[in-house]
Simulated scan of single mutants.
Amino acid sequence: MNILVCIKRVPDIAGSVTLDDTGAGIDEAGLGHTMSSHEECAVELAIGTAAATGGTVTVLTVGPAEAVEQLRAAVAVGANDGILIETADPAAFGPEDIAQVIGDVVRDRAESGQTFDLVLLGDDAADTGDFQVGIRLAYDLGYPVLSNIQTLSPTDSGGIEARGIGPAGTEIFTVDLPAVIAVHEGGVDPRYPSITGRMKAKRAPIAEYDAPEPSAGNPRIRLELPEVKQSSVTVLGEGPEAAPALVDVLEEIGVIRP
């Protein structure tokens, strides 16, 4: 089973997040870069599925030249090769444009003899949260699509069994290939690269192409940061002297009766 995994270079937002002057993006000044956690899990699922079926894993990204770092990070943990669709202004590409670019790559590779049985993406990217590319890509290719998936396993019939968490609990789907699946984190733990993997990644082939001009553009007007909830702490006292105050609090919140 040959698998294409689509990833995105995003700012590492482990710390506080601020918006840029336009309000439509994250201020990346001083931030490192990584791939989204959903996509890290998609890479892990792809590697395991390809290994079980004797297939290959190709990673693709639409982004700046520096995004080759994320492609090689995926190769370091087990992917075979990468595709960089380079653009100096990735923010100009909306979800419809990204889906179109990926669809064109899938079609072009099929014409040259390389078919992808499965296309994996993250449910959404950590910087924009669009939740759209997987659905739009499946529509463009005419493939069945699943989202919010956490684990995959090949079926005896050549398809894929996919599991995810839905409103009522675990949901199980069986889908024929080719298909598009959007992955949600939590089902697997992404592996860490070995020294051998890092050395392999430096030599791995990365095909580079220039991105076309976006046709739809980015419709995002602005992002909003949720209001930070303020919290406070009241010190009841120290040692045994704090016991009466603690009892008063427990009575107030109904843990004990007066």
Rank of each mutant, 00 (worst) to 15 (best):
D124K: 15
V68C: 05
K8V: 09
H38K: 13
F173A: 00
I256R: 08
E241A: 04
I7A: 00
V247D: 10
P244L: 05
G217C: 08
L146F: 02
V247N: 08
L146Q: 02
E44M: 15
T128I: 15
D124P: 00
R198K: 13
H33A: 12
D123E: 14
I253Q: 02
T155D: 06
Q230G: 12
A29Q: 07
I253C: 05
A110W: 15
V249R: 13
G186V: 06
S112R: 14
V247E: 08
E252V: 05
M199V: 10
G30F: 07
Q150Y: 01
P144G: 15
A216N: 15
I160R: 01
D210I: 00
A79V: 01
E86A: 03
Q70N: 10
G15E: 02
A29N: 09
E185K: 06
A91D: 11
D130M: 15
G55D: 06
S215D: 10
R163D: 11
P214D: 10
T115S: 08
G164K: 00
V68S: 04
A110G: 04
G254R: 07
A79Q: 00
A50R: 06
Y209G: 01
D123L: 15
Y143H: 12
G237I: 09
G30P: 14
R107Q: 13
K8Y: 06
A216E: 11
V188L: 02
E39D: 08
M35F: 09
E208L: 11
Q132K: 13
R109T: 12
D140A: 04
V119H: 11
P167Q: 13
A168K: 12
V133F: 02
F93I: 03
V119T: 12
L84T: 00
A74Q: 03
V105E: 11
D189T: 15
I206C: 06
V43H: 02
G48F: 04
V175K: 01
D89L: 01
E251K: 09
L19E: 09
R203S: 02
P167F: 10
L177C: 05
E39K: 04
C6G: 07
K200F: 15
E252C: 04
T61Q: 04
I253G: 02
A211M: 04
A211T: 03
Q150V: 08
S153E: 15
E227V: 11
E241Y: 03
E28A: 05
S232W: 12
G30H: 03
A201M: 02
R72G: 03
G217Y: 13
R9A: 07
G103V: 03
V255Y: 15
A182V: 03
E208I: 15
V62R: 12
V233N: 00
A50G: 05
D104N: 14
D27F: 04
D130Q: 14
E44G: 14
V180Y: 14
L118H: 03
V180K: 11
R220W: 08
T128S: 15
H184A: 13
E238A: 06
E238L: 11
M35A: 04
M1V: 05
G217W: 13
L84C: 00
L223F: 12
C6S: 08
V247C: 10
V105A: 13
G166H: 05
E40H: 10
L4P: 00
P193D: 03
V101C: 03
G239P: 01
T58N: 01
L246T: 10
V119Q: 12
